[in-house]
Design a protein around this nucleic acid. Sequence first.
RNA 1: GCCCGGGUGGCGGAAUUGGUAGACGCGCUGGAUUCAAAAUCCAGUUCUUUCGGGAGUGCGGGUUCGAUUCCCGCCCCGGGUACCA
Length: 992
Amino acid sequence: MEYDFNAIEKKWRKYWRENNTYETKIDATKPKYYGLTMFPYPSGAGLHVGHPLGYIASDIYARYKRLKGFNVLHPMGYDSFGLPAEQYAIQTGQHPAVTTEENLKRYRSQLDKIGFSFDWSREVRTSDPQYYKWTQWIFKQLFAAYYCKDADKAMPIENLISVFEKEGNAKVNAVTACETEFSAEEWNGFDTEKQAAVLMEYRLTYLADSWVNWCPALGTVLANDEIVNGVSERGGHPVEQKLMRQWSMRITAYAERLLKGLDKLDWSDAVKDIQRNWIGKSVGASVNFDVADHDEIISVFTTRPDTIYGVSFMVLAPEHELVAKITTVEYKEDIKSYKQKAGLKSERDRMADTKTISGQFTGAYAVHPLSGEKIQIWIGDYVLASYGTGAVMAVPCGDQRDWDFAKHFDIPIKNIFADVSIEEEAYTEKKGTIANSEFLNGLEVGEAIQKAIAVLEEKKIGKAKTNYRLRDAVFSRQRYWGEPFPVYYDNGIPKTIEDQYLPIELPEVDKYLPTPDGKPPLGNADNWFWDAKNNELVGKDKAEEEHVHPMELNTMPGWAGSSWYFLRYMDPHNDKAFVAKDKVDYWSNVDLYIGGAEHATGHLLYARFWSMFLHDLDFIPFEEPFKKMINQGMILGRSSFVYRVNPMYTILGGSIPTDEAKSILNAKSIFISLDQLDTVRKSESPEWKLNELVGNHLSDAHPGISFDGISYDLSKTTQIHVDINIVDNDKLDVEAFKASREEYANAEFILEDDGTYICGNEVEKMSKSKFNVQNPDDLVEKYGADTLRMYEMFLGPIEQAKPWDIKGINGVNNFLRKLWRLFHDQEGNVVVSDGKADAQALKTMHKTIKKAQDDMDRYVFNTTVSAMMICVNELTEQKCHNKTVLQDLAVLLAPYAPHIAEELWVVLGNEAGTISDAKYPICNEEYLVEDAFEYPVSFNGKMRFKVELPNNLSKDEIEKEILAMEKSQHYLEGKVPKKVIVVPGRIVNIVV
RNA sequence: GCCCGGGUGGCGGAAUUGGUAGACGCGCUGGAUUCAAAAUCCAGUUCUUUCGGGAGUGCGGGUUCGAUUCCCGCCCCGGGUACCA
């Protein structure tokens, strides 16, 4: 009996389902292990082979950890809110929930075929009201908190209110947008509206007018990480800047902790660096410059306070609020036109064009705070309104952009660096000695920075300051298919709905588009008013009643639900809390997180932020959600191509193509096989060769017809994607190709000598349009899930991007069949033998155990598969059918190929289903001990021959043995060796 | 530009601390088996060669008895970022 994977896999999947093999419960007697993969957005296209890569790796690790005695949490769910379902709804009127449900089913059936050990009883969906109830609840917690810098953590806003009531905000050290000071009396005198507005400046989620990335095509705002190259990540639509009243998350309060926390994480340097850059910490000072003849100051941030004497002008962002106030009459027009020009430039243009220098003098002057010198104030679009204070002190000698600006507008450049030329470019190194700078003269940059800050602080014109590039995250979306905010507006003051009335469920709408007056889609809902007396949603008809208030019309962004889903898995059905304390105490944070690096500045940052916040309020016992992370590389597609030659009707040598020839050529395409095409390309006269080949073909295929006057141009040959499913080993299934499209039905082919058509190939992203998508279902059908799982791992290192190539999958399938034959003879009888295994087999097995263990410790999966292949090859050669050996092998294999492992486990006489909780074998070094070693003998570092020597020889004895050998004499060529290096058990190198 | 990865046979890749470069698999070549095919098994497969050998891990240099591995300079590919003061 052959290895019948279809029957075996079906049988065990049924067994696992019926026996709840992978249902996980808290078990205090075992150490816990939390293995997680990033949950998918269930797109309509379903899975291709690239998607399950991370799930397979994580499943292997989860199963491995279970065999190692851990209580493993390995859940799966869906990020089921999202734009595609909504776009589809807009087009078709189909409710996104319906589309999503259909897609989910497809995903689930695909996932189920691969044999994952997910505990599906813990499945979560972000669009499930029972789930987003708690997303809304967390939003409320953020609304009701502020960030206390003294405690360096989030605190309830009530604490802040009581401080305000007793002593105002003078002593409050909090992260806030509030710049004004007020006393207790003043606070208590504020009306409700004013108090609410002040508190809003402290809350961790707040409502504010902010410049947002507005995407007109999608009708919504986008976060910075949702924009790629100036266009929307989804759909590639243009994005513009717009001022809108939006909910934001005060993630900047956590900038320092998000940065510092990275040091403790076992993540790839790539992702950590991306986050570090995104947070963008710079240490320096803020310095105030007085504006001459105005009662205004310009505050700037600089990382180089040591260069303060090199300041020769100032530049404000065109949008800076002071511009209008300080511009002198004679420059009013110029400034106006420059601002207009700058405003017209889209983000994209500005990015594309960083070389052009532009700016405009305002006519106003600033006073240098130390030298008292008057310096010009300019505006220029190289200064960004959104970073720092929107103004810079320009130090042309030390900053290339300032230098370029100064050169361009002929502004003086003052050199404050000793022994450095700034004739050709600015000196931007952060080292050297400062000169021409009064009290800073002779100091090294590092010392000068310290000294400068000290003096600035002493003179009260500046102070040490740290700046972050990280911006607060906009949290509103003008969309339907997202979490509604549990917020209504009482006279314009946002109020949150009490916990017991959550979730606030998405209302029904008849259109998913914005309202005619430009409000978000929820503006179309009938029942979208909050009755604050009866605590229920009511219709427009009651809107006039005093206690009825309009609801928030925005919904939350895609990252809301995904920022905390890993917590919900611990306690997915709890309706009293987002997660119970005992559950989160037991499972704690994620031990291994597998997912894409593309979430570095989105999900992975936001999830850390929310975890820190929930930790601050003592809801969870850790602040970093994901201890270790592996970023799986993309699996690329391997596209296949056919090459069509295209006729040109030229009047060549006076002959004119006949109508008959034309009608034949118009009716059919001619494809040339790759190797033939290569012959053409490589020939001395490619054009002539091509015409000869095609001409020969035509006269053979259409005898008696003249094709004079028709020529073929190599550059006009078109490369066409062909479905990889009709290509085998680069050979085209010509009949299938003809049948694939009507226009190819009577196509003709210029074939190779052996009568085959060879396709070209290229590695590209896997996509429908390139006809290179490999669907896992087909492969499971053809080779089995175990083969697919192992092959995906065998392809190469998990973190590396690699092309998918179907060819190699046979090899893995062969391996499993070979394995099967260790247990069965040709007739299908079990051939497993009891008794003691021989030393050779034990050595093979334990060598493999050691390698597998080693690889698992390093999260290396591809070489484990190789190791098991070698093991099976060796055992086959040894004709080993020993039970103890095969038992170890089955367990080793179980995480990778769980179905066949289960089957073989039973063949070995074990109780069905118990392999999941078997003990992972431990390498017994005794079996590996050798009494001899085959020494590679090198001469001048080049290996020449090998010789087996007993292990008990001393260095000298080894040297003597080897030098005495005839072969050595040959390589010595009669010379005396200069030096002989002997590394026992490793190598011998003879230097001649 | 800056910051990370990476570059090894026809292909995917291996070589864990500086110690046999090319494990394992694919593909290819030859053979066995077969009426034939599939499957299976065996042998070969970095290049080159006058069959002694010679060269070889992107390129050029260096350290070392010995370098895919460490150091310096450069080239190419992939990812991130983009006037961040």
